[in-house]
Computed example of a mutant assay.
Amino acid sequence: MTLLDPRHPFFRPLWRRVLIVALCFAWALFELVTGAPVWALLFAALGGYCAYLLLITFDPQPPDDR
């Protein structure tokens, strides 16, 4: 079981995947600026995980479930 399923149809458009990654890193920056480094690290790690799954290793082809 993964935190999110990159094969879900919701993640097919590129703009959604980029937006999710950007929101994670933006929230990490917000937490860092407000003085919560632990939460900033958590959201930065989440952003890195999302970037890896949704941008780097993303396969745009739907799985063949025949």
Results as ranks from 00 to 15, higher is better:
L4R: 06
R7E: 14
R7G: 05
H8E: 12
F10R: 11
F11L: 04
F11K: 03
R12E: 14
P13N: 05
P13H: 11
L14H: 10
L14T: 06
W15V: 00
W15M: 00
R16V: 00
R16D: 05
V18Q: 06
V18R: 11
I20Y: 14
I20W: 14
L23E: 11
C24A: 15
F25C: 01
F25I: 00
A26D: 04
L29R: 09
L29M: 10
L29A: 14
F30P: 00
F30K: 11
E31G: 03
V33G: 07
T34A: 09
V38P: 00
A40G: 05
A40H: 01
L41H: 09
L41S: 10
L41G: 15
L42F: 08
F43R: 03
F43W: 12
A44L: 02
A44Y: 01
A45K: 05
A45T: 10
G47S: 06
G48M: 07
C50M: 12
A51K: 03
A51M: 06
Y52M: 05
Y52R: 14
Y52W: 15
L53W: 14
L54Y: 12
L54C: 00
L54I: 04
L54S: 07
I56E: 00
I56L: 13
T57C: 08
T57N: 15
F58K: 02
D59N: 13
P63Y: 05
D64G: 00
D64R: 15
D65T: 11
D65W: 11
